[in-house]
Amino acid sequence: MSIIIRRVRHEDWARVKQIRLDSLRDPVAAIAFLETHEQAAARPDEFWQDRAARAAIGSAVAQFVAEDTDGRWLGAVSVVVERPGGPGALEGDVVRVEQAHIVGVYVRPEARGTGLAPDLIRAARDWSWSLAEPRIERVRLFVHEDNARAEALYVKVGFEPSGVALPVPGDASHREIELAVSRG
């Protein structure tokens, strides 16, 4: 099976919506997302159109998809640029340097274990390093403390625990663990 990793295009908005809804229905992936299927499904088409348009161009956010030769999307990942002094990802989060934050990592069940997830993460990381402005100093992501499989994947592609652990929104009994990689 031949797969390409590419950045979404603005006309992909319906597919951006569909893969997000699919990811939120997946019981294995549910621990990884802070949004519910019901919340995402209730958003109007204009939300998804804007989301795809912003992720398709510019240097503030990007979304990458893994597409097979039949045009089927097998996975997706997004990356958001965070500026010092700007809002962090979670309550108590502090952005101190120019950084990129990888979010929404998802691979369909039939493509798991194929190396697709590392390829998607590398695409997001490499895009971040390629930005001329801002010059990204580090790339990070958060993983739920009970998601050992995802954490092992992130460590495998070079991310390391930063020592930051923040409460899961709406569930202070659990933590989101930050993993990061700095520019070498």
Rank of each mutant, 00 (worst) to 15 (best):
M1E: 12
M1S: 14
I3C: 07
I3V: 12
I5C: 04
I5Q: 06
R6L: 10
R7E: 07
V8W: 01
D12E: 02
D12K: 00
R15K: 14
K17S: 10
Q18I: 13
I19S: 06
I19F: 06
L21P: 03
L21I: 09
D22H: 10
L24W: 09
P27R: 07
A29H: 09
A30Y: 05
I31W: 05
A32L: 00
F33N: 01
E35I: 13
T36E: 01
H37E: 07
H37T: 06
Q39Y: 14
Q39C: 13
R43Y: 09
R43M: 14
P44Y: 04
D50I: 15
D50S: 15
R51T: 06
R51Q: 07
A52D: 03
I57D: 15
F64T: 05
V65C: 09
T69V: 14
D70P: 11
D70F: 13
G71I: 10
G71P: 06
W73V: 05
L74T: 03
G75H: 04
A76H: 07
A76Y: 08
A76S: 11
V81P: 04
E82Q: 15
E82T: 11
R83P: 10
G85P: 01
G86W: 09
P87N: 15
E91G: 14
D93H: 06
V94S: 09
V95Y: 08
V95F: 11
R96F: 13
E98V: 08
E98F: 08
G104F: 04
V105L: 05
V105D: 02
Y106A: 06
V107G: 00
E110W: 10
A111M: 09
A111C: 10
R112A: 03
G113N: 04
G115L: 08
G115Q: 09
G115T: 09
L116C: 02
L116Q: 01
P118V: 04
D119W: 15
R122P: 04
R122H: 12
W127G: 00
W127I: 03
S128C: 11
A132W: 13
A132Y: 13
P134T: 08
P134H: 07
R135H: 13
R135C: 13
R135G: 12
I136H: 02
E137I: 11
E137H: 13
R140V: 14
R140M: 15
V143Y: 00
H144G: 03
E145N: 02
D146H: 07
R149H: 12
A150Y: 01
E151V: 13
E151I: 12
A152Q: 11
A152R: 09
V157Y: 02
V157H: 02
G158S: 00
F159I: 07
F159M: 07
E160C: 13
E160S: 12
S162H: 11
G163K: 01
G163Q: 00
V164R: 12
L166E: 00
L166P: 00
V168C: 02
P169D: 05
P169Q: 06
G170A: 02
G170N: 01
A172W: 09
S173T: 07
S173I: 04
H174F: 09
R175H: 00
R175N: 02
I177E: 00
I177D: 03
E178C: 00
L179I: 00
